[in-house]
Design a protein around this nucleic acid. Structure first.
Length: 457
RNA sequence: GGCCCGGUGGCAGAGUGGUUAUGCAGAGGACUGCAAAUCCUUUUAUGUCGGUUCGAUUCCGGCCCGGGCCUCCA
């Protein structure tokens, strides 16, 4: 039985889907104006594991992750660089897809774009106006927060607190300082759509309300995203959706991943610790990045460092070396029960990884082929649900960084042949010289009874 | 100012009201021509001060430290 921590109740709960035959999950995706950074990668990887787990537990799962392609940051970036907005968003979305694919993330079932759902957003805004939860003022349509008594339940902020702490001057068209924008006017130079309130563009939160309803219905099971989205984004989404659709609960379970820091500091461009996925992929395999993200429980803060990546790479080297050793043994049909048990407890990936380590140790000690087949199956099964260990071991162990000036596979093989000849002639001085050359080029040798094997370290 | 989250051994990082998680690194050993890999053994911890309890790292409170949010910024 799956248990997940629900932000709405601030406790771990039994996961009981609305429809046991069909689980529905919505996760906030990227705003496409720049390379995705490692902080964006965390929810992608975390909810990919959730998706993989749900797929094992339920007959049908629909996973929706949106792309925000209308946003003031996008407009600002396009103005700054002179690039056409559509070109910018398309290019960035493609880059995002390539990056997260390298991290082993499965594609969501639906990946809707905000600009394709403007009519759906307008429809919700009309509902809110009709029902008296919103008002039209000075070209803007605003959600009237005091009209919803339960506003603030998700984030734990009361409206009064918000007003007390307000540090921004309240716009004149607001009836209440807590009110937020559903629709705003657009100048001709900015993207805009015709609406009952003139040419304009949507507020930040309305897209997720519109798209989740279209693809998942008025109520669905899981809504995920980074902790930083709880307020105001998710709080406002929740308010809009519930008020537009009385009787619906919107998301039943809210899951939020913790913050990510880089090298001990909050990530920021001025500190120079702003790793993009793309640049990290030049230096490390995507699976190492994925493992580094999964080594910490998703709700904990995570300090992402190059050192943690080196360790993750090293860890995977050990797993793949063991898998290479049993490459010619077909996996049995054993299942990774301990891995599953850990994941069922609020996606405890660090504990799941320790179960994988236990299987690795057992595999290294295994004496019989039957035992090896069983343990290989466990590693592959447990790895699969976490999106790990599915590559060809040989390919993994030969991986080298982009633009690496190291030796080619052929050069390595011929040096190994030279060393083998020297060893056969008992010329260990020459053999060690050859190995030193390989070692300087990051190639590690292992002499086995059947011959010498190698990997890039 | 208000609210929220976190503080575990050299590092990373879980569980747990009483019995060494796990990984990396370190030390010793086996194996090896030497290595590498692997295996075995092994050292180091629960921010701080109180409280509850027979007993707290684990529950409660104060404090300290780190991070975040407090609206059209994202």
């Amino acid at each position: 039985m799956l248990q997940i921590y629900n932000t709405a109740s601030r406790r771990k709960e039994q996961f009981r889907p609305i429809d046991r035959q069909h689980v529905r999950m919505y996760v906030c995706g990227p705003t496409v104006y720049d390379f995705a950074h490692i902080g964006n990668a965390r929810p992608v990887v975390v909810f990919d594991v959730v998706y993989r787990l749900l797929e094992r537990l339920y007959p049908d799962v629909t996973y929706v992750r949106n792309i925000t392609d209308v946003d003031d940051k996008i407009n600002a970036r396009a103005k700054e660089t002179g690039e056409d907005i559509r070109t910018l968003t398309e290019r960035t979305a493609r880059q995002f897809h390539a990056d997260v694919a390298a991290l082993g993330a499965l594609e969501p079932d639906v990946e809707p774009r905000a600009t394709d759902h403007i009519q759906e957003m307008i429809a919700i805004i009309v509902e809110l106006l009709d029902k008296g939860y919103a008002y039209h003022e000075d070209g803007h349509v605003l959600f009237h927060v005091p009209s919803m008594p339960k506003y603030g339940a998700l984030s734990g902020h009361s409206r009064d607190e918000l007003i007390a702490g307000a540090r921004v001057e309240v716009a004149p068209y607001k009836r209440d300082p807590a009110d937020f924008v559903l629709w705003k006017p657009s100048e001709t130079s900015l993207p805009g759509w015709n609406s009952p309130w003139g040419r304009g563009r949507p507020g930040w939160h309305i897209e997720c309300s519109a798209m989740s309803m279209k693809y998942l219905g008025q109520s669905f099971d899981i809504h995920g995203g980074g902790r930083d989205l709880i307020f105001p984004h998710h709080e406002n989404e929740l308010a809009q959706s519930r008020c537009a659709h009385p009787g619906s609960q919107y998301a039943k379970y809210w899951m939020h991943n913790g913050y990510l820091m880089a090298e001990g500091e909050k990530m920021s461009k001025s500190l120079g610790n702003f790793y993009t996925i793309n640049e990290l992929l030049q230096e490390f395999p995507g699976e190492a990045i994925r493992l580094a993200l999964l080594q910490t429980h998703y709700r904990q803060p995570l300090d992402f460092t190059k050192e943690s990546l080196r360790q993750a790479k090293h860890t995977l080297d050990r797993f793949y070396a063991a898998l290479r050793g049993v490459a010619d043994i077909a996996p049995g049909d054993a299942k990774a029960d301990d891995v599953m048990a850990a994941l069922l407890d609020d996606i405890n990936t660090p504990l799941a990884l320790s179960a994988l380590h236990a299987a690795l140790g057992d595999l290294n000690k295994a004496g019989t082929d039957a035992e090896k087949a069983r343990l290989k199956a466990i590693l592959l099964d447990g790895g699969e649900v976490m999106g790990l260990l599915q590559q060809d071991p040989e390919a993994w162990l030969r991986w080298q960084p982009t633009g690496g000036a190291g030796l080619s596979d052929g050069e390595i093989e011929s040096l190994i042949a030279r060393r083998a000849a020297a060893r056969k002639a008992k010329d260990f001085g020459e053999a060690d010289r050859v190995r030193a050359v390989l070692s300087e080029n990051g190639v590690i040798l292992e002499d086995k009874p059947q011959g010498t094997i190698w990997r890039r370290g």
